[in-house]
Design a binder for these strands. Structure first.
Length: 344
DNA sequence: AACAGGGTCAACCGCTGTTGC
DNA sequence: GGCAACAGCGGTTGACCCTGT
């Protein structure tokens, strides 16, 4: 099909809309309704193309548009819906009354996506960036214990907010994975590459000028996320993960957030407030990876997105200390929602 | 005060899907 | 079935604003 014909017309105005143009468009739509966008500009006395008029109406002039900052509930819904629908902004917008796809898309790209990245969560897969966790864990455990106290967090640019218990979890899972490997001679070398303990030993005598080499050596871990995920499915010892998870919660409870204070509002503090969300997200993904049995389920949902729907439980946490904590792990998926195709 | 750099968001572009002839 | 017009979608752009130097 290609470009719409209306965009080829010359002499049509582009750029920001004036109040006068807005008024003309609103007056016309109030009298005649919207639709027939190709002929609307001419009939309304506007020197705009139909697409521009439609966009202006649907994104800004519609009476049911909700302006202003996104609420916590809305942000939560966006994240959950995005994890299901991906970049189907219109499908996401259809579940957030008063919000447009454009607004949600902008908000995702400028706010949520960056927060997820800062937290070490892949905004595409909504899974923890285990490559960073692995690298962090291996380097930190080896270098930090050596005589050369290096802040690996800064070195890797992943900040000081990574929960050490989550790192332990990643390391434990890696270790378990390597233990479950075939130990036949032909696989020994490969298993050595997979074993973080071996890497740790290799770093014991690390010198300051060897940090880059250290990173290079560890870079081979970066492609092992899939191995880790498959290991998650194989790991039967759920008590291990549960224990680490409980430690994570305790770690969060005792952690200080000196700059938060009043800013711990649902909107501006959601991801900034700490790693609770990272833990939630991590364990949500654990659930997605086959660990749902080790995470207790919530019994009800208070999410704003409801109606006749099938309750979908990603995995709940019975810690009502943070009500949002349980909310985010549980989400109502309407019956007519298809994860692959959006609305049916 | 001036400038640079980064963040935000309204608007545009190019494409796909749908509909009617 | 083929074509064109249309509606809608997601990615991208660029002007504007804010903040730090």
């Amino acid at each position: 099909m290609g470009k719409s014909a209306c965009c080829d017309n010359n002499g049509l105005k582009k750029g920001p809309w004036t109040a006068e143009e807005d008024q003309k468009l609103m007056d016309y739509i109030q009298k005649h309704g919207h639709g027939r966008w190709r002929t609307l500009p001419k009939n309304a006395g506007l020197r705009r193309c139909g697409k521009s008029c439609r966009l202006r109406w649907t994104n800004y002039l519609r009476p049911d548009i909700k302006r202003g900052k996104f609420s916590f509930e809305e942000e939560e819904a966006i994240i959950q819906l995005h994890s299901i629908l991906g970049n189907k902004w219109s499908a996401i917008a259809s579940r957030l009354p008063g919000r447009t796809d454009n607004e949600i898309k902008n908000y995702w790209n400028t706010h949520i996506k960056k927060r997820l990245l800062r937290m070490g969560i892949d905004p595409v897969t909504h899974k923890p960036r285990l490559d960073l966790l692995q690298l962090y864990s291996v380097l930190n455990s080896s270098i930090y214990n050596s005589s050369h106290q290096i802040n690996i967090s800064n070195l890797l640019g992943i900040g000081p907010t990574l929960n050490p218990n989550l790192l332990n979890l990643a390391t434990s899972l890696l270790s378990s994975q390597s233990n479950s490997q075939d130990t036949s001679p032909e696989n020994v070398q490969e298993n050595q590459l997979d074993n973080p303990q071996i890497h740790q030993n290799q770093f014991q005598s690390l010198q300051p000028n060897q940090y880059q080499a250290c990173i290079d050596s560890s870079a081979q871990f970066l492609n092992e996320t899939q191995l880790l995920e498959s290991n998650l499915e194989q790991l039967n010892s759920t008590s291990q993960a549960n224990s680490i998870f409980q430690n994570s919660l305790q770690w969060e409870e005792t952690r200080n957030f000196p700059d938060m204070g009043e800013s711990l509002t649902p909107y501006c503090g959601y991801y900034e407030m700490g790693n609770q969300d990272m833990i939630k997200s991590s364990f949500e993904n654990l659930s997605n990876m086959g660990f749902s049995s080790l995470i207790s389920t919530a019994s009800s949902s208070t999410t704003p997105l409801q109606s006749s729907s099938t309750t979908y439980v990603n995995g709940g946490i019975e810690d009502e200390r943070d009500s949002f904590c349980s909310n985010i792990l549980m989400y109502d998926i309407p019956n007519n929602l298809d994860a692959n195709n959006g609305l049916l």
